[in-house]
């Protein structure tokens, strides 16, 4: 299957500092690419550049073979989700989710049907009238997903989306994301510093360090690379078991 998204030799500099150094990878349709990396490795810059919120100094970003570099964020079909849910505080849950449809001036019935459907799928059915400050952290993140999914983005860009949640909610959300990704045939780039999360969420895995990204062909290759810390982690549990 050809790649939906292709990134070629991407370079981004902030003044004298080079943040992305020739990043290169591809993401296939309906696939989630999990990128593992510590903070400051360039993960956020990578996602923001893909979304068109930062400009690339060199290289290319292709969606179905078409270069996106000249296109503004509005026309890239990629939604960038932050660690924080960033719900619009003046809109209720329903209107937050329906926001993208309102931008597209969709008919009232269209908005109602699609939004209610998403509210159902995201387990938010009873919450539609609530304001963002009345929601828990996990609920906010669900609304944030709904708001992105409703416009059928070509690619979801997720920047540590569960970083602010407690362990239990985090596990629930990971499960929910997998379900939702299957239901909506989502293609996603999922960035995290959490080893377990990367392995759980990614169909394929990559590791990022110092502005460079390495793709792994399979889980074995990922485990074999000492930088990922996967082997260390497995050894730790194995020892404990013995």
């Amino acid at each position: 299957m050809p790649d939906l998204l292709t990134v070629r030799d991407l370079q981004v500099r902030f003044g004298a500092e080079t943040v992305l150094r020739g990043v290169q990878f591809g993401v296939r349709e309906r696939e989630t690419l999990a990128v593992l990396g510590r903070s400051g490795c360039g993960k956020t810059t990578l996602l923001k550049t893909l979304a068109g919120l930062l400009t690339a100094d060199d290289g290319d970003i292709l969606l179905e073979g078409q270069s996106l570099l000249k296109r503004p964020p509005q026309e890239r079909g990629m939604v960038y989700l932050y660690q924080e849910a960033l719900l619009f505080p003046h809109l209720n849950v329903f209107e937050n989710i329906a926001f993208g449809l309102r931008l597209r001036r969709e008919s009232e019935t269209g908005v109602r049907d699609k939004t209610n459907q998403l509210l159902q799928n995201l387990d938010l059915a009873g919450q539609s009238k609530k304001m963002p400050h009345q929601l828990s952290g996990g609920q906010k993140q669900r609304v944030s997903f709904g708001r992105a999914l409703i416009i059928n983005p070509r690619i979801l860009l997720l920047d540590e989306p569960f970083g602010n949640l407690d362990v239990e909610t985090r596990a629930n959300m990971q499960q929910l994301f997998r379900q939702v990704a299957d239901t909506y045939h989502t293609t996603a780039v999922f960035v995290t510093h959490d080893l377990k999360e990367a392995v759980c969420m990614g169909d394929r895995l990559a590791y990022m360090e110092n502005g460079r990204l390495d793709m792994f062909d399979n889980l074995e290759a990922f485990i074999a690379d000492p930088r990922t810390g996967m082997k260390q982690e497995m050894d730790f549990w194995r020892k404990l078991d013995q």
Binding site: L53, L103, R104, I151
Partner: peptide, 21 residues
């Protein structure tokens, strides 16, 4: 700023970001 950028990636124009958010 992040909220404004979110409007853009959701497909909104700068005018929409101002008027709706």
């Amino acid at each position: 700023r992040a909220m404004e950028e979110l409007v853009y990636t959701l497909g909104g124009t700068p005018a929409a970001a101002w008027s709706r958010v």
